[in-house]
Design a protein around this nucleic acid. Structure first.
Lengths: 183, 183
DNA sequence: GTATAGCACGAACGTTCGTGCGTTACGCTG
DNA sequence: CAGCGTAACGCACGAACGTTCGTGCTATAC
């Protein structure tokens, strides 16, 4: 279904700037030169659109960060590659509104339901993968390492988006290097 | 003005969970057993209400974190005290929806205007104060230190709110201690 | 005792939201 | 060529949004 995919591309872009709730079916339809009802028929409810959007964002993240890193050997090399690719991913603006997950997490962390569960699932998968590689690298307390690396990413995204300082990404690289060189 | 202050107390609480935009005048009025119009008259526009709410949240942050830390001597002791108090502030749920600033920053980072400017001002003041104490402590690259400590706070907040894991705060304390003990 | 000022109220406005319903245009298969 | 399923459409709805208006209290000032 090419139309549906095109919708979700735009939807993920828009959601990264306006939020998953602030994203409106009407505005999304206008942006795609479609009618509200025509677009709506693809999903049946706004929640289904949100869920599909989260899934589309996950696919984009996998394609841009997870998969390219599989070439690196497990353990420290792949962990470093993940971090590099993640920072690059933000810097090259894979989403126009910065990291989709950072925005979605902040928006839905107090809103129970399937959408929040989907977001949590994505974040947990990312954290789990970071921890797995930290473990393979023989680092002590791999969950703690994953938490710290993830936090640096969140910080870089906010620093860039809110303060408008592009040095955010170099700050993140510096912090990541220090954290991983300690081992 | 007692009514206005009571409104802003609730408004800051609600905004920390629903967001500054998701907070609606009607729901806020209902929560306060007031009429929409009666509440509205205090501010004149939703944007003014949002600005006043940001200011109220800032006052709460100053009272809970900044001021109590002034007892500690400048430099490393006060820097540590800031971090302690900030993590405690989140852990004891000074706002029911977690860190107000983390939520507000993520929500408005792509929405230019006075509200975003106010939020950025608050965050910059906090980052600046962290950097000032890092500088006084003689740490190298004090802005980098401030960035990393701030990112750890963002991470702890998201970890707690989205994943529901109360260990977030101990993870943050561990990360902060490691970062500051390196010096 | 009467005028004045400050709050709060209910009702209504125009807009936008998500969501249904009925219809039309198009591409496939018999 | 006829029939059918899918996709997109226009239109309308009820609810909620921010905002405005006119009115009624209550208490202070003269």
């Amino acid at each position: 279904m090419p139309t549906r995919d095109a919708i979700l591309e735009r939807s993920a872009d828009l959601a990264s700037t306006e939020g998953l709730e602030g994203l409106t079916i009407g505005r999304l339809a206008t942006a795609l030169d479609m009618s509200k009802s025509g677009l709506f028929a693809h999903f049946g409810s706004k929640q289904e659109l949100q869920l599909a959007t989260v899934q589309a964002a996950a696919q984009r993240f996998v394609a841009g960060v997870i998969e390219p890193a599989q070439a690196a050997p497990e353990g420290l090399p792949r962990l470093r590659r993940y971090c590099e690719l993640y920072v690059d991913h933000m810097e090259r603006r894979a989403f126009p509104g910065g990291c989709f997950w950072a925005a979605a997490a902040a928006e839905f962390d107090d809103r129970p339901g399937p959408v929040r569960d989907a977001i949590r699932g994505g974040v947990e998968a990312w954290l789990g993968e970071l921890a797995r590689q930290a473990e393979a690298a023989g680092l002590a307390d791999s969950r703690q390492v994953a938490f710290e690396l993830w936090a640096i990413g969140l910080g870089a995204n906010a620093y860039r988006r809110l303060l408008g300082d592009a040095a955010a990404f170099d700050r993140a690289r510096t912090a990541i290097a220090r954290r991983l060189d300690a081992a």
